[in-house]
Amino acid sequence: MADGEIFGILGPNGAGKTTTLEMIEGLREPTDGEITIKGIPVWPDPGRTKELIGVQLQATALFDYLTVREMLSLFGTFYSIFLSNEEVESLLGAVDLMEKERAVVRELSGGQQQRLSIALALVNDPQVIFLDEPTTGLDPQARRRLWDVIREISAKGKTIVLTTHYMEEAEVLCKRVAIMDRGGIIAIDTPKKLIEGLAAETKITFQSSKEFELAEFGAAMGGLEIRPVDDGYVFYAQNVQESVLSLFDSAKRHDIDVENLSVAGANLEDVFLHYTGKGLRD
């Protein structure tokens, strides 16, 4: 990973995102391979690299009865640096918790707790910050607010590694994305290039009230691959006009009705679908 980038690890639950992070963070020893942070090997003694990294674990609870400010000060003492009052202030500002500094943790909302958790990952002025599913469980508004916080941190030159199973999040935030499935990386590039890498950049979805043979229908449309999805069928195309006309033409000949036709640009979800043949939330 390059300095200063936001690197996303995208994959469904159980893909191995958290396990990968745990090995980098020094929580779980890898059975094979080597991990280095700033040239320092993490294993066998993760003590040295722990000073360099900031970590937000998936769904960490915090001490219920400490205030936001006290939490930050306490975590500051765990590192060899000393956190000045101004630095605590600026951290509070960075995660937008200024007004809440005297509130105890149990009085904070989910989004506020998550932002505090990110602030705690910053107390040691780390080189690399790991955020494990930082927005899971938040409402859309809180999620967008957290994205702003992450962007601001990145703007200060920090390297951020985050995992997510929201493709939109990876697309909006990350400079580069690794797509993981079943413990392995299946693709790694910028979101834009990953999408462009799909032979066809346009996604066409439709529904039909009738059952039909997918392979045969695809062949009739000039060898297109049509896949069933949650609420209909999907295929990718480069020439939208030609494809749509061909769809209606074939449908007419096969006596199939076409409803709710939609045409959209492909996204990372489609990249995942392309590589694994399944959806992110399957």
Binding site: E25, G26, L27, G47, K50, E51, I53, V55, L57, A59, T60, A61, L62, F63, F75, T77, F78, Y79, S80, L120, N124
Partner: peptide, 11 residues
């Protein structure tokens, strides 16, 4: 998971 969170600090 509070013990885990403390475990990723050098403390």
């Amino acid at each position: 998971g509070i013990l885990r969170r403390l475990k990723v600090t050098p403390q």
